[in-house]
Amino acid sequence: MLFVQVLQGVMEGIFLFLIASGLTLIFGVSRIVNFAHGSFYMVGAFLTYQIYPWIAEGTALGFFATIVICGLLVAALGLLFEIFLLRRVYHAEELMQLVLTLAAVLIIRDATKFIWGLDDVTVSLPDALAGAAVVGGTYLPTYQLVMVGVGVVVLAAVWGFLKFTHAGIILRAATDDRGMVALLGINQAHVFSSVFAIGCFLAGIAGGFAAAFESINYLLDTRVIVLAFIVVVIGGLGNLYGALYASLAVGILKALGLLFAPRLSMVIIFLLMAVVLLIRSLRRTTE
């Protein structure tokens, strides 16, 4: 029983990581707290719903192809947002940046309502991914195992990118010290734009995977954004690996919480966040 719930929590955690990774990458480099991340996630989900029937519906390959395409489309949308709007407020107060992304939330939500309507929609899983592996009476749904795989691939890809590519090195440098990167003559605008696009790509594919897993509607944005923020904050804003640990912790806490303290599972997660934040600030002051 316990084991099953922990396993469940891990699978849920990896899915959370897919959403949170983009958010934390963007913050790490550009210091933007992007409330519209959930909106990009939602757009990814709706695009998957829209495009999947056109691309070999019912096959696993078509499904993955759809999700990649949707990720790219969302990345393009994010890029437009970054270039035309966000770029103008990088030097403004934090609050202005937040409010700008909040405005994007309002705009994207109404645009989604306009395009896809108000009803819930879902995407059918391709048959190849619909079943479950039964190990000793424990059900391990294929789709969730696939998502674990996707999570690992995303983590490896982002890690490899940051570690080994030239662009990745610049990104890491920008996370540590933006000013220094600018001094070295590297075009900051390009760095910010590309990281924003990468973040939106991750949000888009997370949305695509969600479309086949749950029911989606125009309220999807707010459903995920708060939890994603909690994960990112617990993991440390801008810290990719922190986000991974935090996602797993939150997933497991949620799954176990409903066994032992069903009404408190959310409260426990918020408490975890408060405690982590306070300990971190305490450590900083004592150092």
């Binding site: 909690i230 959310m266 966040m273 934040l277």
Partner: peptide, 28 residues
């Protein structure tokens, strides 16, 4: 008391968390 322990965006996030907990309690 909790929130002023932190600064900038971390403090803001903590105010959000406090608000979410309060809303959950009131709602449920």
């Amino acid at each position: 008391i909790l929130c002023v322990q932190l600064t900038a965006i971390y403090a803001a996030m903590l105010t959000l968390a406090c608000a979410e907990v309060t809303f959950a309690v009131v709602f449920q």
